[in-house]
Amino acid sequence: MMIDVLYFAWVRERIGLPKERVETSAATVAALVEELRAREERYAAAFADISALRVALDQELAEFDAPLDGVREVAFFPPMTGG
């Protein structure tokens, strides 16, 4: 399946792009992270510690063990600092 993967804040800076289309057969967010990590050093650096990251699936916060079935948009970012 093809999904849009978005990166924000320092995750975007480390990977070097805000958004990309990814062909994946990953069943969960964690499996997608493993695939991305294996790509290149910049991905490995961005995903080195997933406890420092948050994920949203189709613009709703989710957990890293969440399934990707039917998901169109995945976003990775650090903990939010609004207000």
């Binding site: 924000f8 804040a9 320092w10 916060l61 650090p78 903990p79 939010m80 600092t81 609004g82 207000g83």
Partner: peptide, 26 residues
């Protein structure tokens, strides 16, 4: 509203000073 906007609304702040730029940590 303020408590939830702080850590559940997807905003990220980056501060720039003469010493450089850095993301504000949660």
């Amino acid at each position: 509203l303020m408590d939830y906007l702080k850590s559940r609304a997807p905003f990220w702040k980056k501060e720039r000073t003469a010493a450089g730029a850095d993301w504000v940590a949660a």
